[in-house]
Design a protein around this nucleic acid. Structure first.
Lengths: 218, 218
DNA sequence: GTCTATATTATGATAGAC
DNA sequence: GTCTATCATAATATAGAC
């Protein structure tokens, strides 16, 4: 690790071209094949760059994975931020419903994200610990706060630990997209279709909080 | 593939010792590390047998995986069969609730099963197709029949395609156990605890079908 | 920064003795 | 049936030229 210590941390404005392409290809590969199944060779090929560059920029597969995951979590924060701070959402119930719908749309659009989470959350490992401590926990705290308020206000059963609701909501919203290919073969339904995404959001919303009001915000 | 063609298909009553141990170790390894992450060497070591025996009995990693999966599905069928044919369950609602609870207990007890499904359902592959066509579809048909009847009887919203309910139920019930290690680190809650399992079953049951009646069958 | 080797492992599979 | 080699391959990582 002689070189690329300072460079890897912060980059100038215009040396990012190939680095970016590697990152994008890595996110695709890791989410499609998992950490073990993905190969640095394939990532380099799909990014159209030389294998050595991965080493130069990221100092190895493990670090490349971390960088790709950081990228994925930036995207999710960007997707949820507008809803979380939307001033037009007056009551808590409307906001909860909006967050759920925004979340469903996000996981539907970026199943890579779901894949990464399902892959790494399943066993104890340095990657899992890093993921939880650096990225999952803030997200979890936000979701739990939202769900806890719903419990306090009687919109969700109060006698059940919020942990359950969290995994129920995340599982219920994301599995159909995580298993998108299976779903297509098993049922003929394509979870990437716009109409299917909206139906799924409605289904989860209904089961969790009751049927949506007439004028659901699109 | 000179030898082991007839033997691998059917075995005598008492030559199964090492073959069984390989199978058990394989199920553990594949579910813990995924197909790519698991190695035949590790499986052999954990089974306490020689590496060559895997080749002898299963003719390769792919076939070993299939055999391990068959095993897992036998277990799930055994777990659900008693509930599905329990004559003491008079009305449909009680049966639906029992099936959900039995399912939760199964995935909680055998998270390996969930791991396998989540691993292989995520992308199109020969393994995925084999899994869906041979094992998932019968299970899916059963679950859908149950959910469709619930819709017809007004116990579930009728205006939502049953596909959504299927993935919602499976996702809601299984994610906390699939991400068991993550859950422990993130929340301090251990999903393997008896009380946690029952709480989770109750939570899903409540959200889907409404609060359980007083005398819930244990 | 980017590329071409190449070193080093580790893995799935095979051959063949016992 | 079970074991001990060993092969062939593929993957990560490194060294060093340009």
């Amino acid at each position: 690790m002689p070189r690329a210590t300072a460079q890897a941390a912060s980059h100038g404005p215009r040396d990012d071209d190939k680095r970016e392409r590697i990152l994008a290809a890595a996110l695709e590969a890791f989410s499609a094949q998992g950490f073990d199944g993905a190969t640095t060779r394939e990532i380099a090929t799909r990014a159209g760059v030389n294998l050595g560059l991965i080493q130069y920029y990221f100092e190895g597969k493990e670090n490349l994975w971390r960088a790709a995951v950081e990228r994925a979590f930036e995207q999710i924060r960007e997707s949820l931020a507008p809803v979380l701070s939307d001033p037009s959402l007056t009551d808590e119930d409307a906001r909860t419903r909006s967050v759920i719908r925004a979340w469903v749309r996000f996981v539907a659009t970026r199943p890579e994200f779901v894949h990464l989470m399902h892959d790494e959350g399943r066993r104890d490992s340095p990657r899992m610990r890093w993921l939880v401590d650096n990225h999952v926990r803030p997200l979890y705290d936000g979701i739990c706060g939202m769900l806890t308020r719903a419990q306090e206000q009687g919109r969700l059963p109060a006698d059940i630990d919020v942990v359950h609701f969290h995994y129920i909501v995340v599982g219920a919203t994301s599995l159909i997209f995580h298993q998108g290919e299976e779903c297509k073969r098993l049922t003929g339904v394509n979870p990437a279709d716009e109409a299917v995404i909206e139906q799924h959001a409605t289904a989860v919303e209904t089961l969790l909080l009751g049927p949506p009001s007439k004028e659901t915000p699109r």
